[in-house]
Design a protein around this nucleic acid. Structure first.
Lengths: 163, 163
DNA sequence: CTGGAAATGTTATAATGTACCAAATTTCCC
DNA sequence: GGGAAATTTGGTACATTATAACATTTCCAG
């Protein structure tokens, strides 16, 4: 059997979260950016699954924890995390997901399962290269690439065969 | 000087619109779909510039024309047009644009100028192929690709040099 | 010409995101 | 340490985008 990417098979996800938080602290320290408690908590919430989380889902969590939070609280934290490459916004879902390649310079490519909702972030140099080439052929200066692919993840494909 | 894609240079845009409407009628006839007056008018409004139009911009136009329109009116027309491949939704802008390749089977790739707002739709087989390859390598069944590139179009690049 | 499907009208509301200003906290320079 | 400047947070209100739900009309096949 072929290997499966992390989101599509069981794993100790708490380790993902712990690692992501440690990476985030290091990155912020290196960039002289302040990973304040709210920002860190938002990052942790976003990492708690491989499914993207809406801003208002985050807000509901914070509120449930007794934090005194309003929409701008969450959006500000998310903006910060995005600017430092710690989370990505998935435009086609209006939702946010932890960046699996924080610190690395990369163009995110997201495989979004419409059945289970899990999202896998890839780095595909061939894809980035092809996109840059196509943009350059039009004399277009690419600054930001949104690449989101909806479909069925390996696990949900097999399950749907048993319907 | 290199050739420039249509949206980036002056042209008889009314001809674009006329052609798009004619194509749309043919496509709908072939698919036995009803391009009703409201649907056709929405398509025409969307085509009236190379900038994407928000659903509420369309709504405002319809209202100004005396049409008795509410949000669902517009969203329903847009859903219809999308389903028949006549318009695309640009997720990163929450806006809609006429499909430049209606009828052709294609994966849209959009070059979005952050300065002038124009959008060019491309078909780049190399890109589609690379994306499909990357998805396949993860055993992911791709169904729908969102590929939107923000940056500066040729014209706006030259203008910014004169600041 | 009629019964069912498709399309439209209409109201209300959900979901997502931002503008704005005040208060608190941190930083940094002296 | 003291105080000005910058950053971060609190909080209200509102803007924007999108959909649910149900009644009515229009279309068209038989």
């Amino acid at each position: 059997m072929a290997s499966q990417a992390l989101p599509y098979r069981p794993h100790n996800h708490q380790a993902c979260v712990t690692q992501a938080l440690a990476d985030a602290r290091a990155i912020c320290r290196a960039q002289n950016a302040r990973l304040t408690p709210t920002r860190e908590r938002v990052l942790e919430l976003i990492w708690q699954s491989h499914k993207p989380l809406g801003a208002y889902d985050v807000l509901a969590e914070l509120t449930a924890e007794g934090q005194n939070a309003a929409p701008p609280t969450v959006y500000r934290a998310l903006d910060f995390l995005q600017q430092h490459g710690l989370v990505h916004r998935i435009a086609s879902l209006n939702a946010f997901i932890g960046c699996a390649h924080a610190g690395e310079n990369h163009t995110g490519m997201f495989l979004i399962c419409r059945s289970c909702g899990n999202v896998l972030e890839l780095t595909a140099p061939g894809v980035s290269g092809a996109i840059e080439g196509a943009a350059k052929a039009e004399h277009f200066k690419a600054e930001n690439v949104t690449l989101e692919i909806a479909g069925l993840c390996p696990r949900c494909q097999s399950e749907s065969r048993h319907d």
